[in-house]
Every structure is written in structure tokens, then in C-alpha cells.
Amino acid sequence: MNPIMSAHSSQIDISDLTFSYSGQGARILDIRHLSIETGERVAFIGATGTGKTTLLRLIDGRLLGWAGMVEVLGRTLSPRRAAPRSWNANIGFVFQEYALIERSTVYENVRNGRLGRTHPALSLFGIFNDRDETAITEAINDVGLADLADQRVDQLSGGQRQRVAVARCLSQEPSILIADEPVSSLDPTSAEKVLDLLRACAVARGATLLISSHQPKLVAKYVDRIIGLKQGMVAFDTAADAVTAEELGSLYGWHVTQPAA
């Protein structure tokens, strides 16, 4: 059991949320109500520009300037002020483009996931405690990169880099694990491995898993619930195995042909 889990509930509650970038009239997000319980595995799907990444950034506490009520891990977020460091550390975010420090090693990149949990001053001199070291080692082992721990990440393949990004996120010991388009640039085999890994890690750590993706059929195998976003609004919110072709069609503008009677 993740020790962080005992101290927090990873419930997410969003009400009457609206957001638009300054200078642009169009609403990027317009969500009346959305609730996600602890330990749920949820995929957000929808066409490009429907607000998936923006919504995930909001839950991660990195989006300001919105209106409404957002409560994550028992904290009511402020649209004007960034969340505190200790709260940030409870949410792990796997970025679409990996967002690694290219010249640093696998170990150093994974260690960066501990920065919100370790001593802020001692860490500047490379001093991390035993718990940090354990979390880093476990995360590297979990993603199967133990042999490459001392390798610079700019020498790794796309799939390996994605696994480093996942390990960095895991070393945070997050209560919520967010992955923004984690498989968009991977081949089908690597994509399934990464999704499998994300699900296994979330299950093992009791963490809530949120994934955004353009591949509804692929991610449906790894989540329990799928939320379709269209023009910033929730178009449907249903069990992963209950999404219909019509729902997907309305999301992506496909024309679904009914079989002849």
C-alpha cells in the first residue's frame, strides 16, 4: 500500500468548470460535473483540441485562469494560485513528449520525480534519503530499465524514453497517475507494453489512473471507464466496454453505417 494513499483520498470533483485562453473567446473546457473515485482507471478520448490535455493539466494543478469548483485530493484548487509543492508531489504526470532532461541519465531523470518529496536544500547538493533511493530503484526496476540506469536518455529509443518518463512519475509515489497521450508516438507493440505497465503500476500502488488518448479501442482494454470530450464538454461518460460506435462516431465525426435489416 502506498503510504501516501493512507493520508489522502484521490477523489477528483469538478463542477461548473469553464476555461478559455485569454484573448480567445472559444471555451476550451465547459464541464458541468465530473467525479472520479479513488483507484479508478479512466481514459479521456476525443479529437485534437477538445481539451483533453488542458483538463489533465488542470487536475495536475498547473492550469490557472479557469472558473468553477475543482477539488483534487481533498484540496480545493485556486484558479489564481499554483498548488503547494507537497500537494503537487502526490500527482504524477507522464508527458506526451516525455519531457526528459536529455543530457541526464535514466537514474537522474527518475530521481527528478522525488524533488517534491525530498529535502529541497539538501537535494541541491545531491543528498537524497533512503526512502528516495528506494523509490527511485523500485521505479527503475518496475519499468525494466535497471540495466540502462546509467545511460544518458538521449541515447535511448522512443519506447525506452517513454518508460523513463513513467518511472519518473512512479518514483513520486503518486496517488493519481496521469498519462497524456502516452502511446501516440509508439508502434502498436510498444504502445500495448506501455499501457500494460501504466495499468499494472496503478493497480499495484492503488493509484487512480487517468489517460488521454486518440486510440479508444486500444485504451479500452486497460481502463474501466471512458469519458468522451467534444469541444471541451463531456459528450459521454461510460464503462470502457460499453462505448458504442455511435458515441465514437459523434466524437470524431465518423459516419456510422447501420447494417441493413
Binding site: 498547473r62 504524477g92 504526470f93 519531457a99 537522474e108 527528478n112 524533488l115 517534491g116 518529496r117 541541491l124
Partner: peptide, 21 residues
Amino acid sequence: SGSLAALDSAGATWVQKLRFG
């Protein structure tokens, strides 16, 4: 910017972002 955003997301302080990012 993504590299520093990842550290931000992990809860790094401003100085930690400079040092490690």
C-alpha cells in the same frame, strides 16, 4: 519548456528546477 514543466509537476522548487532541469 516541457522539461521544466515535468519538474514543476513533480513539485520541484524554483531552485531545484534550475539545478536539476
